[in-house]
């Protein structure tokens, strides 16, 4: 744990995090840095809303939808891997494969006619799209357990519920966390676009910059969103590594499974 903390990568992340917090709390101190990007005396710092408020609502939107998606997706994946839900297994795999070809921005746009403008449609889109990676990863985790482990658990007299809670889910945990990471990263990106449908979030700063041709707004909105996404993704990867360690797999969750990289949105 201590050794983890003094690795150069960790230190770099802490510095970046501190810089992010400093910028969000006192953006005007950075005005000099951004001023060269403006022209005709345009303001270098976005002041229509507070950056802290925008960041918090952005994160809240993503957190609520990702949490809801995680609960539903893990529940569904458990259901289709039990005998009662076996009939849905093949179809649900196909639906997830097809669903993941849908561009997240299209899902966002299509949820506007259903939910109207504002946070509602963004949350619906984030929730719907967020289901897919979590469901897929949970399904892979639950359906590729080493048979010896499962048989041992049954032989020990564990009931189905005990086996699920004490053996299957803990073993699948690194993959489940990786799925939640993917959903959160896609959610952060889609929530940024959500500003075009009047959801409160950091995309507002970028959109304002694009509309008023103010590069300083675009860059500060872009950098804050980008840094947030990278730090949150790293955080989830650390949790996945921790879960993998507990599981007794030293290699940890691979950061770049070639099959699961459709993170950008």
């Amino acid at each position: 744990m201590i050794r983890d903390l003094i690795r150069p990568g960790t230190i770099l992340r802490l510095v970046v995090f501190a810089a992010l917090i400093a910028f969000l709390l006192a953006p005007d101190r950075f005005a000099g840095l951004l001023a060269p990007l403006t022209s005709n005396g345009a303001p270098p710092i976005y002041h229509q809303s507070s950056l802290v408020d925008l960041t918090l609502s952005h994160l809240f939107t993503v957190a609520v939808s990702t949490l809801a998606a995680a609960i539903v997706a893990v529940g569904l994946a458990i259901f289709v891997t039990r005998p009662a839900g076996a009939e849905f297994l093949a179809l649900s795999r196909a639906v997830v494969n097809i669903g993941q070809t849908f561009p997240p921005v299209a899902v966002l746009a299509l949820s506007v006619p259903i939910m109207g403008f504002g946070e509602g449609s963004t949350r619906l889109a984030l929730f719907l799209y967020g289901l897919l990676p979590i469901f897929e990863n949970t399904l892979v985790g639950l359906s590729t357990l080493p048979p010896a482990v499962v048989e041992t658990a049954s032989a020990m007299g564990m009931t189905g519920r005990q086996r699920l809670l004490k053996v299957e889910l803990p073993l699948a945990m690194p993959l489940i966390v990786e799925g939640i990471r993917l959903s959160a990263v896609i959610g952060l990106a889609t929530a940024t676009i959500g500003s075009t449908v009047a959801a409160k979030g950091l995309g507002e700063v970028i959109v304002a910059g694009l509309l008023s041709n103010n590069l300083a707004f675009i860059v500060q909105g872009g950098v804050v969103t980008g840094v947030l996404a990278v730090l949150i993704s790293d955080g989830f990867q650390a949790v996945a590594r921790h879960a993998a360690k507990r599981r007794g797999v030293s290699s940890g969750a691979p950061p770049a499974e070639p099959d699961e990289q459709q993170a950008a949105a």
Partner: peptide
Amino acid sequence: LINVLNIIQTIPSMALFGILIAPLG
């Protein structure tokens, strides 16, 4: 290399599109 590309992949599209306007401009 993979780490750097991974970080790029994580940046939201609207943010990356926006950030690239500065150097290209």
